[in-house]
Amino acid sequence: MAPVNAVMRIIDVPLRRLQKATGIGGMATFFLAPNMLIFGIFVLLPLVINFVYSMTGGTAFFLSERDFIGGEQYSRLFQCQNYLDPMSCQEDAFWTAVGNTFWFVVLQVSLMILTALITALILNRELAARSFWRAVFFFPVLLSPVVVGLIWKWILQRQGLLNFGLYQFGMDPYTWLTDRNWTFAATIGVSLWAHMGFYALIILAGLQAIPKDLYEAAEMDGTKPARVFWRITLPLLAPNLLVVVVLALIKSVQVFDEIYVLTGGGPGTSTLFLTQYIYETGFASALRNPGLAAAASILMGGVLVVLTLIQLGIGKRGENKGKR
């Protein structure tokens, strides 16, 4: 312990002096400062800079070379005759991406919750090699999104594994990644495969937190399995499900990397999602427009904040109702 004590004595002196100078409250600031600094530099500052970008025009990258144009980028995004018909909008790609993202979120999140719940329910049962199965369903979560995209590209492409399999069974191969509907379905399927294990894990933890006694009490009462699920399991799982919905929703709105690798947004713009639109508008297109991209990302952030607040509000209401 002697070396530790020696170090402590050395640290002690300046810290004591500092506390004498700043008081106890000052010490709290001192210890929080490094974290606040990192948060400020890497989260808060970019947010502010991004907002400033959204108020500027031109193709130049450096803020100093850009002209202030106020809310022009925003009004350009909203320049539309009919919001339900992207082609009638000035920024048709933006509204296509909004529409695609909307349907992706609705379908992917509801399917995600359903499959994660069913998977967790199964993994919570007494089954052979349970740990193995739990690991199997979780493994895709550990993969890099690019790897996920590539794996599925190998499977789904024209000369991929799936068509090879179909061919072996005497069926005709199909161009999965060039059919609009199939590709859209594939993006949902692949993102389900890649992330479901994570949400199943959260739900599984919730399932295991429900006391066994409750199920035994229900058993003594002769409660049918369906009624046990709807009246006991589901209500007690609600807090975990809320977490899953919030996380899945945020992640789903932000969908990008694995889909970009898999489809590149195509065929056409059928799998162009918001984040890809922002990326391409700001960085990848020939006529890049960082201001427009910034404005779109601010709008997307706003939608996410609103969605999260709504859900937290619902959760808080449920919590008060079900206070223990």
Binding site: M220, G222, R231
Partner: peptide
């Protein structure tokens, strides 16, 4: 267990936390 006609009182009470007392008794 249900058809043996017995009732059990658990050490933890095993009351359903999301139901009122009345609902617990009625369940």
């Amino acid at each position: 267990a249900a058809d043996r006609g017995l009732a059990m009182v658990f050490q933890s009470y095993a009351l359903y936390p999301h139901m009122s007392v009345r609902q617990n008794l009625a369940f």
